[in-house]
Write a protein that binds this DNA or RNA. Structure first.
Lengths: 187, 187
DNA sequence: TTCATCCGTTCAATATAAAGAACATTCTTA
DNA sequence: TAAGAATGTTCTTTATATTGAACGGATGAA
C-alpha cells in the first residue's frame, strides 16, 4: 500500500498537459518518437508505461518527470488577508502572524514577524527540506545559520536552506519587525 | 524546451533511497509486494520499470512518485543579503529588488517592491504554476486577481495562485512598499 | 455528394518488464 | 572449518508494454 499520498492519475495528467500545450496525440507522438497508440493507451489508463517510455513521451511536450509528478497545487480561495485577519501562530514576546490560516496543500507560507527586544526563536534540528527567506522592515536582527552569525538592519534580507539549524534574535532596543517566507510550509 | 533539468538516474535514486531507509533489496521487495529480482534489475538500470511497477516498489519505503522524482535542492551559499546588495530587477517608477541574484535551482523568490504613485505591474497571461504572497509595509495598493479588485493597506497581505491573471497598482499618494514571495521562482 | 485530412481508438505481432527459483558471495556462529 | 542466513545477481518463463496498421468518426473543401 502506498502510504503517503494520493495516486497520480497518469493518464489524466498526461492528457491535461498535452491538451494544454495544444498538441494532438499524433503530434505529441511524432515529436516524442513514440507511436500514437501508446499515447492513446496511456491516456486511457489501458496500460502503465515504463518510466523510460513515459520520459520519452514527455520529451515531446517537453516536460521532465519531476514536473509531471509534481503535486498539483490546489487553488487558494481567499486572496486578500486584512492585517487584523492574519493568524497569530505565536504569542508573548514574539508575534508570528501568518498570511492565511490553512496551510494544507500550499507550497508557500508568509509570516509577518515581530520580536520584542531580546526575544529569540529558531530551530536547532533539521526540519523538512525547503527554503526560507526574510526581509527586515524595522529594528536589528541577529541571525545564526549553521554556526555563522550575522547582524541585519532594515532593508537587509536573508535566504537559506531550511534544513540548516538556525536562530533569530532581536538584538536592538526597539521592536524587530520583518516579513518572512518559506517553502514548503510543512513544519 | 525543457529548460529546467537533467534526467533522473532511476536506479541510482532508488538505491540511494532504499539504503537511506535501511532496507535490503529483499526487505523492500517484500514490503512492496514485488520480487527482489525486480528491485535488483531496476537499481542496476537493467530495465526501466513501468510507472505502476515503480509506484509499487516505492510503496514499500514508502515514498510517492512525486517525492521520488522531486528535484534535489542545491545548497544556497550566501545567507545574508545587505539592502545595498539586493538585485534590482526592474527600474523607473517600479523598483523590484530581489533577495539573491541567482534563481537557478531555487524554489523560493523574495522581492522588496516599491511603486511610485500610480505605477502598475502585473501579468495578464497564465504564467507557470506556483503561488504568490505579499505583505504591505507602506502605502496603499490596488490588487486585481482573476477579475476581482481589492484595496490593501499597511499590514494587509495577499495570497493567490500565480496562474491567475493579476495586476498591482499604487493607488495612494505616497510610495507603495511591500515584501513579496513566490514559488517556484521561474518566470 | 466525394475526397482529403485530421482526430482518437482498437487489433495482432513483437519487444520488454516482472516473477520465481537458483546462483555466488559475504558475513556470522558453532 | 562447516552450516546457516543474510546479501545482491542471473537465469527462464510469463505477463504486459509498445508497435504499425487498420478502423470509425468528425471536419472542411471541391
Amino acid at each position: 500500500m502506498n502510504a503517503s499520498n494520493f495516486d497520480v492519475d497518469v493518464g489524466a495528467r498526461l492528457r491535461e498537459l498535452r491538451v494544454r500545450h495544444g498538441l494532438s496525440q499524433r503530434a505529441l507522438a511524432k515529436r516524442a518518437g513514440v507511436s500514437n497508440a501508446t499515447v492513446s493507451m496511456v491516456e486511457a489508463n489501458r496500460m502503465s508505461p515504463s518510466v523510460s517510455g513515459l520520459r520519452q513521451i514527455l520529451s515531446g511536450i517537453p516536460l521532465s518527470l519531476s514536473e509531471f509528478f509534481a503535486e498539483a497545487k490546489p487553488t487558494v480561495e481567499q486572496v486578500v488577508f486584512r492585517a487584523s485577519e492574519l493568524k497569530e501562530i505565536a504569542g508573548g514576546r514574539i508575534s508570528f502572524r501568518q498570511v492565511g490560516s490553512n496551510l494544507e496543500g500550499r507550497s508557500l507560507q508568509m509570516i509577518h514577524e515581530r520580536y520584542k527586544p531580546g526575544a529569540v526563536s529558531g530551530k536547532a534540528m533539521l526540519s523538512h527540506q525547503g527554503e526560507e527567506a526574510g526581509l527586515i522592515i524595522r529594528g536589528r536582527m541577529g541571525l545564526e545559520v549553521d554556526g555563522a552569525r550575522y547582524e541585519l538592519n532594515p532593508g537587509d534580507a536573508y535566504f537559506f536552506d531550511s534544513r540548516k539549524p538556525h536562530a533569530f534574535k532581536n538584538i536592538g532596543d526597539e521592536d524587530l519587525e520583518l516579513v518572512s517566507a518559506c517553502t514548503p510550509p510543512s513544519f
